[in-house]
Design a protein around this nucleic acid. Structure first.
Lengths: 152, 152
DNA sequence: TATTGTTATACTCTATAACTATA
DNA sequence: TATAGTTATAGAGTATAACAATA
């Protein structure tokens, strides 16, 4: 095995680990959320509605189509978790959590953190090491040569 | 903010980063694989067929139903990338890459590693730091001091 | 003319259930 | 009886395209 092949193999392994971990995290999320009686994709939206947001913005943040947000909003409204409130631009509708929605968000938020793999499996120190690495991985523009200064 | 709330907030942030990164990784994978003219889920299977494997085993490794593996195998066969070869147990069929399949796997393998976020954004040293943390998160090793409740 | 949200419809991925052929 | 693979079908999740209201 050449040096290059070795680096490639290692990179593939890390990428695969990353994906595996994220899939576990998602599956954990589903398990955590189930007993609260809300489907995962609705839960995800609720957690994003820290403050009222235009449906369009939600589509951007969820990286999905506007029509799908309509879909989500309908279901969230049926459950009494959000309201559509008119924006100043009269084309726009904001999604705002109702009281029940806020309560749901808080429950979700705590339940998710409590069961978090990141808390269960890593020490405080390990989390402190992990954070800057993930930030750099998630970063849009960073180049490998520069490691010290971490953005955001 | 209490100490507990702070830990929770940090854990949520890390979990979200993890999922975001993995989604980016998957999306990168899709982009990388597209020009090779093979859908992502077929590519994933090809990369797993380092050596011939029973369909059942593939189902386990992909964490999917046996019927779906049949589905994949049909499409891979149509493309001439794999063959079904009989196992010694005559109920079993192995999936084995054809020559075209091996060639595809090599192309995929290189393309994926080359574009890998993990290579592009991290230094050798950072990858060395990241690996053990991910391994522990993935549960490949034993958890930290606290081996509390039995997870999923 | 471009943009927001909606509607109706269609597609992709994946699972379930029933079946066959072995074991 | 239990297991490997197959078939046909169904469902969840999400997108596309055409549309109405507003900018």
């Amino acid at each position: 095995m050449t040096r290059r092949e070795h680096r490639y193999a290692e990179a593939r392994r890390l990428s695969q680990l990353l994906v595996t971990i994220a899939e576990q995290a998602k599956s954990d999320f589903a398990d955590t959320v189930l007993p609260l009686g809300i489907p995962v994709h609705l839960a995800r939206a609720v957690l994003m509605l820290d403050q009222p947001a235009p449906m369009r913005e939600l589509a951007d943040r969820l990286a999905c189509d506007r029509s799908y947000v309509t879909n989500l909003a309908d279901k969230l409204e049926e459950r009494g978790l959000v309201e559509r409130v008119p924006g100043e631009d009269r084309r726009v509708k904001l999604l705002a959590l109702t009281d029940a929605g806020v309560s749901m968000r808080d429950q979700l938020s705590d339940a998710v953190a409590e069961r978090s793999m990141v808390l269960r499996r890593l020490t405080d120190q390990q989390r402190a090491e992990l954070a800057p690495l993930l930030e750099q991985l998630a970063g849009e523009q960073s180049s490998p040569e520069r490691s010290a200064s971490t953005p955001t």
